[in-house]
Design a protein around this nucleic acid. Structure first.
Lengths: 189, 189
DNA sequence: CGTTAGTTTGAGAGGACTCAAAGTCTGTGG
DNA sequence: CCACAGACTTTGAGTCCTCTCAAACTAACG
């Protein structure tokens, strides 16, 4: 099973050496949890890095007791660490499964060690971060000056299955609006 | 002069080997331009990576004939490439000097080569990207659910000199609001 | 000292928010 | 397999904030 995943990652980003793959395989854990399981909680924290094999995941944090959803991940997506590791800060994020899911888990320590040991692994990771940056920029563009309708449409275009898989409240939060507003947008189509 | 800059970067991120520094020095160009100079234009494009030694810079793109400001850079900031190089896309960004500035310029090709040749250089670059991700996330959090006033205050806190250095219209655009609104926010303090 | 770029102020319209209540769906235990 | 409880979604009414368009004011620069 991991065979296939490494191939997918290689095809999308970059093909790393067999040695790096070997060491990587040693470090990862394949984990499987049910819907609503919390992969990570605010505060208590050993930073980890995830890759979604199957399922759907959201990351959120609390702002004035409201959950603000920050990131979705589906099949073949990474869930980047939510902390600024440079300043050794704790994460304020929760990571919750929205569907029963299978994931690859790698601790940040192991990730750093793999980067240190294998130049090509660090290269791969750098490419993954570049893609993340691109996605975040798109998201900023969307929040900065698009209408709510435009934001919603482009989210659907990017993740066509999102409407049926993710609760409306979470989607609304992700788009930076209330769920009532999103419900009305949907109705007005 | 470059001596000092390498030291600064090493102190903030990671210290790379003398060999990597040597090769890096070979590739960079120190450039100096006056206010309003366009470092990059939409469309026509050889991707480059900049570091600000002195001055102030903004990046923006056009949306319905309006300039949307996306990124500011001041002393010791990087200006990350605005394209998704993974998909070989062209940039839609303009990069313009707001003050007379001195910058370090490195082409993306050279950057990639340096990464390939020196593992420690790629590591450094990866750390720079991690920091960028952190900044972008902060920005998303700000746009997603903070009030305009909160967004403005935290921007001032992050860049105390911004009020005097950057035109109000550009700051407003960066915050995702109109300049009239920002002017009123300022007045209401 | 005139021209242009940048900022402020005003009035009115429209969109998203809040609070409240009523539907609808889904999963679990009887 | 049904019924109930809890989670999720829709609808309504009123308020507030930000937008647009317009015009006046101020600062910066040659």
């Amino acid at each position: 099973m991991t065979e296939e995943i490494f191939k997918k990652i290689a095809a999308e980003y970059f093909e790393i050496s067999p040695e790096a793959i070997f060491d990587w395989s040693e470090k990862i854990k394949i984990i499987e949890y049910k819907k609503k399981y919390l992969l990570a909680k605010e505060g208590s924290y050993i930073p980890k890095f995830y890759y979604v094999i199957k399922g759907a995941v959201k990351a959120y944090y609390l702002l004035d007791d409201k959950k603000v959803t920050d990131w979705f991940a589906f099949e073949n997506d990474f869930i980047p660490s939510t902390t600024n590791l440079l300043v050794g800060q704790k994460s304020n994020h929760f990571i919750e499964l929205i569907e029963d899911s299978i994931l690859i888990e790698l601790t940040n320590n192991d990730l750093e060690e793999l980067c240190k040991k294998h130049h090509d692994f660090e290269h791969l990771y750098r490419l993954i971060l570049s893609k993340t940056i691109y996605q975040l920029r798109e998201r900023i563009a969307s929040l900065q000056f698009r209408t709510v309708k435009q934001r919603y449409d482009s989210l659907i275009k990017l993740h066509p299955t999102i409407e049926s898989r993710i609760p409306l409240g979470d989607i609304a939060s992700f788009l930076g609006i209330t769920q009532e507003t999103l419900s009305r947008i949907r109705a007005s189509k």
